[in-house]
């Protein structure tokens, strides 16, 4: 890794402090990494030693999802059978009765599928737990190693809080993302593909209608997201300013006190805080 990238990685964003609004993840403009490709490559580097386990996770996720997708179709068989038999019965067709043996048979299969799906889902999460945590363990270890080699100048130019928040908060975020989002991503993709296939086998026409509607809803989502992005941007800006002010006032607490500037400092804080509320 080049030295330049190291610096870039650390300089990424300086108003520090973790962000987060109450608005959930929809279209939140995340701090954009300056060098996304480099950062991504580095992350892959961390995952590389665990690639076999990740492959297992992937396999588990696929299996778990496939079983999950197949089951509604099988369940549909049971209900359809039930319905058909009943209709026949209503029409007083002689000898018509609900074929309980058949339904029971289907339900057994279904139970088996669900158990298998749950089992694979569990295994996938179980393996991912150690993969994610060991990965961030390595990261923390590397950061600490790096910190012990950096020149003192680096430490003088930054607040301890800033460095601390990188080692704990940011890394924690990576862990959560790996644990949840990565598996979710795999599951979502598999589900999407699987459901499409299942739908096609059930009814190509209905699938067609669905596919026509889909871009429409995507458009709506996009319009809503881009509008909310503006709000988010304003909110993030206020939040960044607020965090900056807090950091500055707390680091200079002695000076603020010595010169009796508590009042002004609180006033400025309240102004930014009020703006944050307005934008929120």
């Amino acid at each position: 890794m080049s030295k330049e990238r190291d610096r870039q990685g650390f300089k990424g964003d300086h108003d520090g402090g973790p962000r987060g609004g109450p608005m959930g993840p929809l279209g939140r403009p995340v701090e954009k990494a300056k060098d996304f490709k480099g950062t991504f490559k580095r992350l892959l580097g961390y995952l590389k030693p665990r690639r076999y386990r990740l492959l297992v996770v992937l396999l588990m996720a696929i299996l778990s999802t496939v079983f999950n997708i197949v089951s509604p179709k099988i369940m549909g068989k049971a209900t359809t059978k039930l319905f058909e038999d009943l209709m026949l019965k209503f029409q007083h067709v002689p000898g018509a009765a609900v074929d309980f043996n058949y339904i029971l048979h289907i339900l057994y299969i279904l139970a088996g599928l669900y158990i298998a799906s749950a089992f694979f889902g569990y295994l996938q999460q179980y393996i991912m737990a150690s993969v994610a945590q060991k990965t961030v363990y390595d990261m923390r270890q590397d950061i600490n190693l790096k910190l012990s080699r950096l020149p003192l100048k680096f430490f003088d130019a930054r607040t301890h809080g800033d460095i601390l928040s990188r080692v704990t908060n940011d890394i924690d975020n990576i862990a959560t993302t790996l644990q949840q989002s990565l598996t979710q991503l795999i599951t979502s993709v598999v589900t999407l593909l699987g459901v499409l296939i299942m739908m096609l086998t059930i009814s190509p026409w209905l699938t067609l209608i669905f596919l026509v509607v889909l871009p429409l809803s995507a458009l709506v989502t996009k319009a809503a997201a881009s509008r909310s992005q503006k709000f988010f941007a304003g909110q993030q800006k206020a939040l960044g300013e607020l965090n900056g002010h807090v950091e500055e006032m707390y680091t200079g607490h002695q000076v603020v006190k010595a010169f009796g500037h508590e009042g002004e400092s609180i006033e400025k804080f309240n102004t930014i805080n009020a703006r944050l509320y307005e934008e929120g």
Binding site: S64, Y114, S117, A118, F119, G121, Y122, Q125, Y126, M128, A129, S130, A132, Q133, Q179
Partner: peptide
């Protein structure tokens, strides 16, 4: 996380 891993599949 290993404990929590069981929760969702079992619930499902």
């Amino acid at each position: 996380n290993k404990i929590m891993a069981a929760l969702m599949p079992v619930m499902m």
